[in-house]
Design a protein around this nucleic acid. Structure first.
Length: 519
RNA sequence: GCUUCCAUAGUGUAGUGGUCAAGCAUUUGAGGCCCUCACCCUCAGGACUCGGGUUCGAAUCCCGGUGGAAGCACCA
């Protein structure tokens, strides 16, 4: 067997979609434009895109830009509303992921359809205007499964009320249109679900032209049929929505689209995935825009040097299972490392630097020549002069190299640095510790490398450059890097040895600024 | 409380009655390569939630327990 082939990981394949015919599959992406897409949203995107590509189908991008939170509740910190820049951020993220969509629609352009159809339902007695207070409806009628007084009023009354909802005679919260899914439904979630409600909040695209808005179930119940969607793949949190849609399709006598549900991702650790929170911090200026790693937006992953295919594959590996998944960013990171490593040149960087004076160097000058990439010696090496004066020079090492080095299970691989200890300054020479003060003083010991010596990352003070790296948890690591860093280009993905991969964002004479890719 | 859904190593996933003494990824450990604790290579560790059935035979089917998730919004 070809050794290349032998270790190739098995490509995961998604299950077939029921009733899917090549060339006839129509699916849709339905993002709510309240911010940039993040990894959680990306699962929906990647799954739909993957199926459309497999069946050679058509993918619709439908901005689910209904009004969201009503005007009276718009100041709530958890309020959901459309932000104008999201109309650009979303396609930008899709393009980055390599998603091709064939049509673009906006819910906000289609409100008349939802209004008109709701009117028809009222005329047929399948829906009614309800002016119960929300809490009352829930406690007095929904929970016990009893009809509310509005339900049995005359057709004429409901028709008249519906007109009043549209023309402004009824205020926000004053009335809603309910579908007669039935108050006797076993599942309380399904009892007389709302179709339309009033909001006076201004919409970024259409202003206050419309005040009677549909809820998700109603707009999609209509649009999935009207736009010809054959297969829906969405999160299981939208399960009830699918059930309401089916009820609507049956009412209309429409063929059902097939609905596939996948489980929700749970993020823990330094994941703080919230579009709303991201929006607040971006707008408040606390974050460096939507590309800030702390947003976990697709834009931010791009800015960090995460490869879109790493995200795609990691998400596709999860398949279509509908149970809750504790998402581990290592799945993306490990795939990303494999993609990025070959082209990531190596450089020296020490964070939390400590000064070290080297004495008794028996040379007038010394130039370290570490390889740009140990896996590809042909790429050549950097040249880093030490700057020796009278047999002495100053360098920086990282604080972490002072203490003992343990593996992740706690086994000590190297002891704490101490007087008389001999260590290797990588790509330079061996030194013996003279004094563990500040600065630390060491003496040149020997040139030849001994095999198992502790190798320490060193940056010569001469011509060194300040380095800052922003991590996804918001922490900025600072330190000094080797002078050759100045020759990098913005956008380069490099590896700081023993630190991790970094994408360069800004370069000046004094400082390099980068976003942490992964380690 | 009411409706559902799910249950394979630490985290995910493959597996739909015999070919499973359970495959893969990631994580972890040992070693190799190596002037990185990276990459790459080799090896190793680690799982079918429990209890009953059905069956010649169950990770796979049935029932019950337990555990987890989702919904019960004038959000999406």
């Amino acid at each position: 067997m070809d050794p290349e082939e032998k270790h190739e990981a098995e490509e995961k394949t998604l299950p077939e979609l029921p009733g899917a015919e090549k060339g006839k599959v129509v699916m849709r992406l339905a993002p709510y434009p309240s911010g940039a897409l993040h990894i959680g949203n990306a699962r929906m995107v990647v799954l739909n895109d993957e199926y459309v590509k497999r069946y050679n189908g058509k993918l619709l991008l439908v901005f689910d830009d209904t009004i969201g939170t009503t005007l009276s509740k718009i100041d709530d910190p958890k309020a959901k509303y459309v932000i104008p820049e999201a109309y650009d951020l979303i396609p930008e993220g899709l393009e980055w992921l390599g998603v091709k969509y064939h049509e673009v629609h906006y819910k906000s352009d289609r409100v008349e359809i939802y209004q008109e159809e709701a009117g028809k339902l009222i005329d047929k007695g399948d829906a009614y205007v309800c002016n119960c207070e929300a809490n009352d409806f829930r406690e007095k009628y929904k929970r016990p499964g009893k009809d509310c007084p509005c339900r049995s009023k005359s057709l004429e009354y409901h028709q008249e009320m519906y007109e009043k909802m549209k023309d402004g005679q009824i205020e926000e919260q004053g009335a809603v249109v309910r579908l007669k899914t039935g108050m006797d439904q076993k599942d309380p979630a399904m009892r007389d679900h709302i179709l339309m409600r009033i909001s006076d909040a201004p919409h970024p695209r259409i202003g206050t032209k419309v005040r009677l808005w549909p809820v998700l179930e109603w707009s999609w119940g209509l649009d999935d049929h009207l736009l010809g969607v054959t297969h829906i793949v969405r999160g299981i949190d939208l399960r009830k929505e699918g059930e309401v849609e089916k009820f609507i399709w049956d009412l209309k006598g429409w063929k059902h689209a097939h609905i596939g549900l996948y489980g929700r991702l749970k993020f823990s650790g330094d994941f703080k995935l919230s579009k709303t929170l991201a929006r607040q911090k971006v707008h408040g200026g606390e974050y460096e825009g939507w590309s800030d790693p702390r947003t976990w937006s697709l834009q931010s992953l791009s800015a960090r040097g995460i490869q879109p295919n790493a995200v795609r594959k990691a998400l596709l590996d999860l398949g279509m299972s509908n149970r809750g998944i504790e998402f581990d960013k290592d799945w993306i990171y490990s795939k990303n490392t494999k993609m990025v490593d070959e082209n990531a040149n190596r450089y020296w960087f020490v964070e939390k630097s400590r000064p070290v004076i080297i004495n008794n160097i028996p040379k007038d000058s010394f130039v370290a020549k570490p390889l740009l990439h140990p896996g590809f010696p042909k790429k050549g090496s950097r040249k880093i002069p030490l700057g020796i004066k009278d047999g002495s020079c100053e360098v920086f090492i990282t604080e972490a190299d002072l203490s003992e080095y343990k593996n992740k299970k706690g086994k000590i691989l190297y002891p704490q640095m101490d007087k008389d200890q001999i260590v290797r300054f990588k790509d330079m020479f061996n030194v013996q510790v003279e004094e563990m003060g500040n600065p630390i003083r060491v003496n040149f010991h020997s040139q030849k490398m001994t095999h198992n010596s502790r190798k320490i990352q060193v940056v010569p003070k001469k011509d060194s450059i300040r380095v800052r790296v922003l991590q996804p948890d918001g922490i900025v690591t600072q330190g000094f890097g080797e002078p050759t860093l100045k020759s990098l280009t913005i956008g380069d993905i490099i590896q700081f040895e023993r630190y991790g991969y970094v994408k360069i964002k800004e370069i000046s004479d004094k400082e390099i600024y980068g976003y942490f890719t992964n380690n």
